[in-house]
Amino acid sequence: MTGFFSEENSVNAVNARMGVDIDPRLRTVMASLIKHLHAFIKDVELTEEEWGKAIAFLTRTGQMCGDERQEYILLSDVLGASMLVDAINNRRPEGATESTVFGPFHVANAPVRQMGDCISLDGKGEACLFEGRILDLDGQPISGAKLDVWADNAEGFYDVQQPDTQPQWNNRGIFITGDDGRYHFVGAKPVSYPIPDDGPVGKMLAALGRHPYRPAHIHFMITAPGYQKLVTHTFVGGDEYLTSDTVFGVKESLVAPFEKTENSATMWKSKFDFVLAPK
Rank of each mutant, 00 (worst) to 15 (best):
Y193S: 10
K189E: 04
E259C: 02
G103I: 01
E7R: 12
Y183F: 14
R69I: 11
F175I: 04
K229C: 07
L254Q: 03
P194M: 06
R182E: 15
H38K: 10
G132V: 11
L33H: 07
K279S: 13
S76H: 12
R25T: 10
T28N: 03
M267Y: 00
F40Y: 15
G209Q: 06
G249V: 09
G187K: 05
C118S: 09
Q114A: 13
R172N: 09
S270M: 02
H36F: 12
M221C: 08
A127N: 06
M115C: 03
A96G: 09
L129A: 04
R91F: 09
D197N: 14
I22Q: 06
V14K: 10
G199L: 06
T266C: 14
A224W: 05
G178S: 14
K279A: 15
F4E: 14
D67N: 11
F274C: 04
T2A: 11
V85Q: 10
N90G: 10
D23L: 02
H184S: 14
V231Y: 07
A207S: 15
P111N: 02
D21H: 12
K42M: 04
R214C: 13
G3H: 15
E131F: 00
F5V: 12
Q166G: 00
P257F: 03
G226F: 05
A39W: 01
S143E: 15
L242C: 08
A13M: 02
M221L: 13
V250K: 08
P257Y: 00
M204D: 08
N171K: 11
G173V: 00
D117T: 08
H217L: 03
C128I: 03
G103R: 03
E94C: 01
H211I: 06
D164S: 15
V201H: 05
V186A: 06
Y183Q: 10
V160Q: 11
M267N: 01
A16K: 08
A31L: 02
E8D: 12
I134E: 06
W150K: 02
W150H: 13
S143H: 11
